[in-house]
Design a protein around this nucleic acid. Structure first.
Lengths: 205, 205
DNA sequence: TTAAAAAGATGACATTTGTCATCTTAGAAA
DNA sequence: TTTCTAAGATGACAAATGTCATCTTTTTAA
C-alpha cells in the first residue's frame, strides 16, 4: 500500500512497484486519514508512507495504525535523511525509512521489510535470535546491505557461486568475497548454514 | 499416542518413547474404542496402534478416526510383515506399518511419520512435489532409509561431513558416500540444496 | 555351512568453497 | 583537480565436498 500526498509520487511508485511480479499494490492514498482507513480494509503486507503530509502526518497515522495492529509493517518515505521525525517514527515501531531519491533501492527494501527486516537508508538490519548452532539464545543485530541480501537469497535458492555471479553480473571471486563477509557477520561457517539461517530466520519472518 | 491390547507392550513402548526428549506420549490405551475416544481428546501428532486387537481391530479404529480427521497420522504396529490387513490399512490412509520386533527403528520411523513421510517396515517413503530447481511440478516418490534420513537431518542442521561422521559413528568417507547417494536419489547437486530440500519438503511436512 | 547381500571403509580424484592479500576503477568529497 | 573511499576483480591457497571404483566386514538367506 502506498501513501503520499503528492499524487505524482503515488502514481510513479505504483508503476515502479507493479512492474515487479512479486508485488501487488493493494491500495493508494494521499493523506494520513486515508492511510488508516485503507490499512484496516486491505491489511497490506507493507505500508509505504510519506513522512511529511498536509493534515495528519505520516507519523501520526503510523501511531494510530500501530496502536491497533502492532504487527503492521510500515516503511517511511522521506526526502531528507536527517529528518527529525525519523527517530520518533522508529521508536513507534516503524520498520525503517527510505530516501525518495533512491528509486532503485525501493523494491529490495520493501521485500526486506516484508521478510521482517528493518531498513535505514540503504542499510538493511535484522534483529533476531540466532536459531542455528548450539544454544545461543541471545538476540543479536546484524547489518546486511542490499547486495548481501541479494546474495543470501541466491544461496538460499541453491545456486553455486558461478551461477550467482552470472545472475547478479559479478565475477565469481566477488561473490565469494561477499559470502565470506556475510558468513563472518552472521557467525556462520559455510553456505549450507547460511541457507539454513535463511529458512529459519529470514523467510516469512 | 500408543494403543496396543497387550498392556506390557504399551508400557514398554511408552518407556522407550519417553526416553527421547523430543517425544511425548499424550495417551495410551488397549482397545480400538479407546483409541477413537482418546484420539479426539488429545489430537496426537502420531498414533501408534496395534493392527490386531480383540474387539475392534486397529483397522476399524483407524477407519473411524480417518473419517473424522483425514489428516490423522496413524502408524500400525504388526508382528508379521505379511499381514493381510496391512494393504487395506494403507489404502485407508494410514502412514505405514512397523514390525514390533524392530525396536530400534520405532523412534526414527515415528519421527519420519511426523514429518509427513510414510514408513514400510524399515523403508521410509516420501511422495511430494519437488519444490527445488526450475519448474518440475511433477510428483515424484523417493525412497529413503533410516540412515539416509538421519544423515539428511544432520546436513539440515548445518553439520560438516566430519561432524556427521562423529555423530553417527561412521567414517567421513561413508558419510560422503551416503550423501552422494541421497543427492542422486533426490536429484540435487550439493548439500546446500539438500538442506533447502529438507526445509521446503520434509520439515513440518 | 556356504553363498549372497548389505553396510561400511578406503583412497584417489576433480571441483567447489571460503579466506586473504592485493589490485583496479569509478564515484564522492575536499 | 586531486584525494579518498567503496565496489569489484584477481590470484593463490587450504580445506571441504562429491564421485567412483574397490575392498572388508557383517548380516541375511539358501
Amino acid at each position: 500500500m502506498v501513501i503520499d500526498d503528492d499524487r505524482l509520487v503515488v502514481t510513479s511508485l505504483k508503476t515502479i512497484l507493479e512492474a515487479d511480479a512479486e508485488i501487488q499494490v493493494v491500495g493508494t492514498g494521499t493523506s494520513g486519514r486515508q492511510a488508516i482507513e485503507l490499512y484496516h480494509k486491505t491489511k497490506p503486507d507493507v505500508l509505504l508512507m510519506d513522512i511529511r503530509m498536509e493534515g495528519m502526518t505520516g507519523i501520526k497515522a503510523a501511531e494510530k495504525i500501530l496502536a491497533a495492529d502492532p504487527e503492521a509493517k510500515i516503511l517511511f518515505l522521506t526526502t531528507f535523511s536527517d529528518d527529525d521525525y525519523i527517530v520518533s517514527a522508529l521508536r513507534l515501531g516503524a520498520k525503517g525509512y527510505l530516501l525518495k531519491q533512491n528509486y532503485e533501492s525501493i523494491i529490495p527494501s520493501l521485500k526486506a521489510v516484508q521478510m521482517g527486516l528493518r531498513v535505514f537508508g540503504d542499510q538493511i538490519i535484522t534483529k533476531m535470535p540466532l536459531a542455528l548452532g548450539t544454544d545461543k539464545t541471545s538476540t543479536v543485530e546484524y547489518d546486511l546491505n542490499e547486495k548481501e541480501l541479494a546474495i543470501i537469497t541466491q544461496v538460499a535458492n541453491g545456486l553455486s557461486n558461478k551461477e550467482i555471479a552470472q545472475a547478479l553480473y559479478l565475477s565469481e571471486g566477488t561473490v565469494r568475497n561477499y559470502i565470506s563477509v556475510i558468513l563472518e557477520k552472521l557467525q556462520l561457517r559455510d553456505r549450507t548454514q547460511l541457507a539454513i539461517f535463511y529458512y529459519k530466520n529470514l523467510k516469512h519472518a
